[in-house]
């Protein structure tokens, strides 16, 4: 709570920042109606955590994306679940960026229990080092990530610490190659 109060002033400044950084391709009418809600979610996050922890990537109608460091992701996810009522993950995916030497892991979160949120998908993303790709699992916060994380583990080689089974799921049992969704894995003949 104490960190909450100390950050309120900070938060109001960031509120303006966020509304400035809004990108959208839709008409202006829908922009003003819908984006208030999206910005309020983001502002809530930035107020609770500092902008060092939560970086806002974009705010669009129905879609927001934030980037957090891997060691803070459990804390942010718990806040998203308990306070902002995001209750399940629709998908967990990873994107390989060899140029930055990083892998981005993205959780697309949404809500069934809060009707206002049902049209909203929040992308909670984090970036891990490509050579030592490990991050804490979110299975204790969002049970629905269980198989998605297993898939990300085998497809991109991201080790989820605390996940009960970092094991093969879709790939064949005798798969003896690098994780196939990494960019250096090439389809034969291509």
């Amino acid at each position: 709570m104490s960190s909450n109060q100390s950050n309120t002033q900070n938060g109001s400044e960031q509120k303006e920042k966020v509304s400035e950084s809004v990108q959208t391709s839709l008409s202006k009418k829908t922009e003003t109606i819908t984006l208030e809600f999206e910005s309020s979610i983001v502002n809530h996050l930035v107020t609770r955590f500092t902008d060092k922890v939560v970086q806002v990537v974009y705010v669009r109608p129905g879609r927001t994306k934030i980037l957090v460091p891997p060691n803070e992701i459990v804390q942010v996810a718990t806040f998203l679940k308990d306070t902002l009522k995001f209750d399940h993950a629709e998908s967990v995916s990873g994107t390989d960026y060899p140029k930055d030497n990083q892998i981005e892991v993205i959780y697309h979160l949404s809500s069934y229990s809060d009707e206002k949120l049902s049209s909203h998908v929040l992308a909670l993303s984090t970036r891990v080092d490509r050579n030592d790709s490990r991050m804490p699992t979110l299975i204790d916060v969002f049970k629905s990530t269980e198989y998605h994380e297993r898939e990300t583990f085998e497809m991109l080689g991201v080790y989820f610490e605390g996940h009960p089974r970092n094991e093969r799921f879709l790939l064949p049992e005798d798969w003896a190659d690098i994780p196939p969704l990494r960019k250096e894995f090439r389809i034969k003949g291509r």
Binding site: D87, H88, A89, E90, Y112, S113, F142, K143, S144
Partner: peptide, 12 residues
């Protein structure tokens, strides 16, 4: 449990 497991469609 349906919410927790994040099921969708007719199951949900």
């Amino acid at each position: 449990d349906a919410i927790k497991l994040g099921v969708t469609g007719s199951v949900l």
